[in-house]
């Protein structure tokens, strides 16, 4: 089964096909709720508990049995957290790194993916295989030499060190190539006869028709970059160059027992990711399925 075919069948509520057959009811609701409701509670528990704790006072948090409902909603923890660590700086850094990486991946993966999909040039198959092969190599193998390369380029402990190695991903090239190949080639031929240049064909015909694939790549790349921990841990050193993930570990370490503050920081760090998730769930689902299917 092809990747696209499978990725396009991803279950999403509106598209779900499974139908509950009428059966003799021994409950006023589907018995599946008895399984799914507790399951959903367990999955949401860590998140809900994080939010509840972020609104508690320090005393309430360090109480056993735990205070399940705080006496009052202590929103002050959020500004306190922002004051006790350079969260603003870390947000900005993470935002700069993530947006640069996403934009550059969209551009470079589109160009390369299109060439691999449609242009017949010398060395195409060999180059493509070489790029695909890099997908098999785990990050641990390359992280030490990549550190050395970044150091040699004079980028160590700077935002470019976080950006440069991630400007383009072989995965993105592969994904877009697969998608471009599903588009009807006559559209591109018609555009060429209409007088469009190669870049014109790509930007005016192919990319507008590939918005779902581009959105998928964008959200997946955003998630990878926003959440990445290991590479920033290696590539930057000073707190002013930290990303949120690095900052959180430091913040948690220095505020070990101040859980309401730590949770407030944690909630804030997740907000952009969660907003994106709820705004573009469909693309997350498709992207995750594609990520999995690339293996």
């Amino acid at each position: 089964m092809t990747m696209e075919a499978q990725a396009d069948r991803i279950a999403w509520p509106e598209e779900a096909e499974a139908v509950e057959r009428p059966r003799r009811r021994w409950l006023p609701f589907s018995p599946w709720h008895l399984v799914l409701f507790p399951l959903a509670l367990i999955m949401l528990l860590p998140l809900v508990w994080m939010i509840v704790t972020s609104l508690e006072t320090q005393a309430e948090s360090l109480h056993f049995p735990p205070v399940l409902v705080p006496g009052s909603l202590h929103f002050g923890n959020y500004p306190s957290a922002l004051r006790s660590a350079p969260f603003g700086r870390w947000f900005l850094n993470t935002f700069i790194v993530t947006s640069t990486v996403v934009v550059s991946n969209l551009l470079l993966c589109s160009l390369a993916g299109y060439a691999f999909a449609r242009i017949r040039f010398f060395g195409r198959a060999a180059t493509f295989m070489l790029l695909l092969a890099t997908l098999m190599v785990p990050f641990q193998v390359v992280m030490i030499p990549t550190f050395l390369i970044v150091k040699k380029l004079g980028l160590f402990d700077s935002l470019p060190a976080l950006i440069a190695p991630n400007l383009v991903s072989a995965f993105g090239i592969f994904m877009l190539r697969q998608f471009f190949r599903t588009l009807p080639v006559e559209l591109e031929e018609a555009a060429r006869i209409d007088g469009a240049s190669r870049l014109g064909v790509l930007f005016k015909i192919v990319l507008p028709l590939s918005l779902p694939a581009l959105a998928t790549l964008a959200v997946i790349q955003f998630m990878w970059t926003w959440n990445d921990f290991l590479w920033p841990l290696i590539a930057v050193f000073s707190q002013r160059n930290f990303t949120l993930q690095l900052g959180l570990t430091v913040f948690q370490g220095s505020h070990d027992v101040f859980w309401p503050l730590v949770m407030a920081g944690n909630v804030m760090s997740m907000i952009p990711m969660l907003v994106l998730f709820f705004a573009a769930q469909r693309y997350f689902v498709r992207g995750i399925a594609t990520t999995g299917l690339k293996g």
């Binding site: 959903a40 949401l44 944690n266 760090s269 997740m270 994106l276 998730f277 997350f284």
Partner: peptide
Amino acid sequence: AVFVPVVASTIA
């Protein structure tokens, strides 16, 4: 509820 944890970072 089942999908949301996927987007939470390892650190969060």
